[in-house]
Amino acid sequence: MTWNAFHHRGEILQTVIDTADARLDGVLPMDVPGVPETFGSELDLIGALALKWHARLSGNIERELMAQPMDLEAAITNAWATTAAEVPGIRMIIDRYTDAPSDAEMAAALTKSREMEWVKLARVAGLASDDSTPAARAGERVTRNARAGVPVPVPEVTTTIVDAVATPSLVDRIRAVLAA
């Protein structure tokens, strides 16, 4: 793929995303000029949209973890909900075609993608450490909570000031032990 082709593909994909966000009908916008020539099939287009979704979700997860590193599940739930709000057209398309794929190949690809996302969410949220079915179910729960708008409390950071007490340093403690 040439540099110009790469940029042209990116421009077409952005037009598809803008169209999906404007329509909010969950239908792949195969009618956008340049889509049939650039992507060729519904599976190729939905694959590109899924890649955009996962990239945006990963970025939002990183931002949430920096903002609230103590409550992993809340951070991941908030990141998913934020991503869905930022690119609602993509989310609707992925959901629609996962639930009602146009063919068996798309069904397999989207089912695999969804399960891998659930496992990733569970792992990052600290709910799983493997790629098992229970891990996928934990990730599915995170997604379900994000979709339902389950309020996720953001832990409040508080600072307490302790009365100034002379605490011996590590070196002082080691000297005391050696002297004893």
Rank of each mutant, 00 (worst) to 15 (best):
L49K: 03
K52I: 12
A48K: 01
E37W: 04
P33Q: 11
L72F: 14
W53T: 01
G47N: 11
M70K: 15
T82G: 06
G26K: 04
L28P: 01
T83L: 01
T82D: 06
H54D: 08
A50Y: 12
L51P: 02
I76L: 15
M66R: 14
L24M: 12
L28K: 00
E62Q: 13
T19S: 13
L49Y: 03
A67D: 10
S58E: 12
A79N: 09
I46Y: 03
D44P: 00
V35L: 01
A79V: 13
L28D: 03
I61C: 02
E42D: 14
E64N: 09
E37S: 11
V32M: 07
L72C: 10
D21T: 08
G59E: 02
G40N: 09
P33E: 15
P36L: 01
A48V: 05
P88W: 08
I46K: 02
D21C: 09
L49N: 04
A50I: 05
L57N: 10
G47I: 03
G59R: 05
N60F: 00
A22T: 13
A22V: 02
E73A: 14
A85G: 08
D21R: 02
R63M: 04
Q68Y: 07
K52D: 12
A22H: 14
I17K: 02
L49A: 07
E73M: 09
D31E: 11
T77Y: 07
Q68G: 06
T77K: 09
D21A: 07
L45W: 01
L57T: 09
E42L: 00
W80S: 10
A48R: 03
R63F: 07
M30Q: 12
A75E: 01
D44G: 05
E42A: 09
M30P: 00
H54K: 02
G89K: 01
L49E: 02
A50S: 15
A22F: 11
R56M: 05
D18N: 15
L43S: 13
A50R: 10
E37I: 11
P69H: 05
G34Q: 10
E86F: 00
D18Q: 15
L72M: 13
D25Y: 04
L51V: 12
I61D: 00
T82Y: 02
L28C: 11
V87G: 00
L72I: 03
E73D: 14
E86A: 08
A20I: 09
A50H: 14
W80M: 13
A81E: 06
T83F: 00
N78R: 15
A20T: 10
V35F: 03
I76S: 06
E42W: 00
I61M: 06
